[in-house]
Design a protein around this nucleic acid. Sequence first.
DNA 1: AATCTTTATCGTAATATTGCAATATTAAAT
DNA 2: ATTTAATATTGCAATATTACGATAAAGATT
Lengths: 110, 110
Amino acid sequence: MGATKTDHFTGKQNAIATLAKALGHPARIAIIEYLLKVDTCICGDIVNELPLAQPTVSQHLKELKNAGLIKGEIEGNSICYCIDEKAFQKLQTYFTNISTKAENKRSNCC
Amino acid sequence: MGATKTDHFTGKQNAIATLAKALGHPARIAIIEYLLKVDTCICGDIVNELPLAQPTVSQHLKELKNAGLIKGEIEGNSICYCIDEKAFQKLQTYFTNISTKAENKRSNCC
DNA sequence: AATCTTTATCGTAATATTGCAATATTAAAT
DNA sequence: ATTTAATATTGCAATATTACGATAAAGATT
């Protein structure tokens, strides 16, 4: 096999898993952190910041974009990538929720 | 290649990526949500809750445990799995941080 | 128009993940 | 001691991911 059985899970579960999966690589975490660090988001220099070849970085950017974690706009002959807040807000909400529920359960648990 | 170049990234980046990767599968999201839903955490019935065979579920549980997202204690001849709060608190903090930073940046961005 | 710069895509090799049947393990129950 | 029940491990096939060299595409510069 090897193909994930997405159809057996809820839309929400798949949505969170997709976001998490896209962030499941240190290079992509590094890209997100870099996009937050720099002042502007004209980001032709992401490649220089990472220890990876240009095609590899381009591929990681594509995955982040597909997952909805970043947006990309053409800006002359370079491209302006930036964080898509909404996706991270979703993650924040989700994990806040989980943490809260986990705390409330603590008493009757190991 | 195919092997992730973890050594080129910071410990924190790798740590978050590891947690995110472990949650990057709907079955593992479903497991976490189930562990939160049930009252106790004696969890021999996770297999019945998921549309996957027992060895597959066992493997997903192992990955969640390796990532530090759940804990497992032997309880007689079954095993008590439960959420490891600390990992989810880390994720909550991380994404809250990202969201806040992203909001502050919004003005001078696309 | 020719060239440069920047980013994307193709092709491909190495490795990892997903899923399950078969089997092993371990503790409880008879 | 056998059997039962619950979970883990092994082995394997199908598929996905990671990484990069080579090349393409498209706008900017000369």
